[in-house]
Each structure stands twice: as structure tokens, then as C-alpha cells.
Simulated assay, not measured.
Amino acid sequence: MLPALRHIDCWIFDLDNSLYPAATNLFALIDIRMGEYIQRLLDVGPEEARRVQKSYFHEHGTTLAGLMAAHGVDPHEFLDYVHDIDLARIVADPVVIGAVERLPGRKFVFTNGDAAYASRVLDRLGLGNMFDGLHDIHAMNYVPKPDPRSYAAMCACHGIEPGRALFVEDMARNLAPAKELGMTTVWIDNGSERGDHGADPAFIDYHIDDIGLWLTDILENETQ
């Protein structure tokens, strides 16, 4: 293990575009479902639905948070609908599987999605049995990343000591609250939409573009 990371005993990963490449583009499928949902909900056309979707995402952290605040949308109904997608485009990466399996300490997924969807994705990635916990949007009480309350609640729920935890995330802005708590932060810069929004070296400890290769590298340093 790299000397700077030998104190880490808790590894926290965002799910989408972090544990698999952004080029997989699952969000293209989810976007279609979100658009359909908003069109029906508000009785608007595709262009207006797209505008609403993106404005809520930028203003509230997730489209769901905006829909809940403005329209009282049932989060379970919304998430069940938008996550009803074909996951065939996900390909398990043996490098990621091998590296995650070898990590010492506990491992968690911290996602603005829901557990049902996350579990399906993890199974498809070959990672379904490798995590000690999954902290999803329901567990956050619908207060999504990057709201600092969601990070503090996750740590309290799972007994995580932030100073001994590392967090990997593709949305740079979502790392700021983790760093404020004392976590080691890793930005996986692999092409996510607005992934670089708000990026600042002050709260990014490691800037990478491939999670499997990076984890393998730091693990191999343990024997050097």
C-alpha cells in the first residue's frame, strides 16, 4: 500500500461512472426514462421535460430532489421507473474485481441512486458480494450528495471514522464535504457530464482516470 494510504481502513465508492467507466453511459438510458416520467407528470413535451430535468439536477443535486421539492413526487415510484433499464451494456472488469477484493478493511457504496438499482449494477459488475454496506438515497432521507448532512449520516450509520476513510467519486464537487470531514478523496475524472464542475485541488487528494488501474497500483506498492 502507498505509505500515504496505510492508515485507510474504510473504502467508500460512488457507484455510477465510478465503479464502471462513464463511457458505459447508463445515464443515457436513465435520462430517457426521466424524460418520460416528467412529461407525464407535468404534461409537457420532451424539450420542456429535459429543461426541467437538468435544472433540478443542477439546483438540487439530483432530479429527484427537485421533483420532490417542487411537485411532491413519491421517490420510490420515481426511482423504480427511471431505473427500469437494460444493464446489458455493463461489462465486468476483472482488474476492478481483483483490486476491490484485495482492499484491506471495510468497503461501502455511497450512491444517490437506490439500493435495488445499485445491487443490480454491482451484480452485473461482479462486485455484488464484496461490500460491507450500501448507503443509498433512501438511507440519506432523500438529502443527496453533495449535502454535507448525507456524509455525516453515512459515517454515523456505519461507524466510519472519516480520518481513516477514502472516498472515490466521479463528480468532483461531491468530494468537498468528504474532505471537510477528514476523508482522503479520489476524483475519477473519466468523462462524466459536469464531472469537473467545481473541481478544486484543495479538496482532491488523488486525480485519476481509471479506478481498476489505480487501485492495482496502490496495492502493488505494498510489496515494494
Rank of each mutant, 00 (worst) to 15 (best):
D84I: 08
D86E: 08
L87S: 11
A88W: 11
A88G: 13
A88S: 14
R89V: 13
R89G: 11
I90E: 09
A92Q: 13
A92E: 12
P94A: 15
V95A: 14
V96Y: 08
G98H: 15
V100F: 11
L103G: 06
P104N: 06
P104A: 08
P104L: 04
G105N: 09
G105C: 06
R106H: 11
R106F: 10
F108D: 05
F108A: 09
F110Y: 02
F110N: 00
F110G: 00
N112E: 03
G113N: 10
G113W: 09
A115Y: 12
A116R: 14
S119K: 10
L122A: 08
R124N: 04
G126N: 04
L127W: 03
G128A: 00
N129M: 09
M130R: 13
M130D: 02
F131C: 04
G133R: 07
L134R: 06
I137D: 03
H138S: 07
H138M: 06
A139K: 01
A139T: 01
M140T: 01
Y142V: 09
V143C: 12
V143T: 14
V143G: 07
K145I: 03
K145C: 03
P146I: 09
P146K: 05
D147T: 08
R149D: 02
S150V: 08
A152V: 12
A152R: 15
M154L: 02
M154K: 00
C157T: 12
G159E: 01
I160G: 06
G163E: 06
R164C: 12
R164D: 10
A165T: 07
A165E: 09
L166Y: 10
L166W: 12
L166G: 08
L166A: 15
V168P: 01
D170S: 03
D170H: 02
